[in-house]
Design a protein around this nucleic acid. Sequence first.
DNA 1: AACCAGGAATGTA
DNA 2: TACATTCATGGT
Length: 231
Amino acid sequence: MIAPVPDLWSVHARLARCYGAQTKWWPGRENPFEVIAGAILTQRTTWTNAGRAIRRLREAGVLTVDAMAALDVDELAELIRPSGFYRAKAGALKAFCDLLGRSFGGDLRRLLRLPTEALRAQLLTVRGIGDETADAILVYAAERPSFVIDAYARRLLGRLGIADPNDSYRSLQGRFMDALPREAELYADAHALIVRHGQLHCRAEPMCAGCPLRDVCASCAATSHVEGTKA
DNA sequence: AACCAGGAATGTA
DNA sequence: TACATTCATGGT
């Protein structure tokens, strides 16, 4: 029995029904600079570790553009150590502050007012900010509809038979953006749902028992005999 | 005690 | 374009 290939809109609906709306998923979303710092600090690490780094920055009083711009990179690196890759991430944070100072008078709001594609391009000039981080910033700090593709999203597309996980970032992003209305809050919710679902079921080592996408997931179908659920 | 987690940059062919 | 390597901490 071949699982039918679902459309992404119905997948989102099913994840939303299963896990509920994820409106408060990104920590500290009220503060754009904190979102940007978080987007960099959470690269290839858990939010537990990124959260520690954020907390240390706040406690040191350097979770603002001006304070961070004035801080020595090595001290910054030391503060964010718990998030891993701390030298690279300190460099990225500083590079972002430099961009603000150099081109936007140190005013984050001015940067965030740029048209979406121009803003994305500016973010990508920062060493340490790539496609995923740029889109996370666009969605969660600038409230623009630019779909975030992460390891979970790639995996999901692959297991649903919608796309090859190794396809280019932009290509995979297009799959979502062609299927879902281009609304920032929807994309914020959808990305959060994908992560949530990924952490529960769609990992490198899948945990298919109770997966809400069972009937359309190749990985789940392959493990159905283990569950004893005979179609 | 190996293995993994919500990436990105760089180098090579 | 495709693939390997490097960066690093913390939880299981």
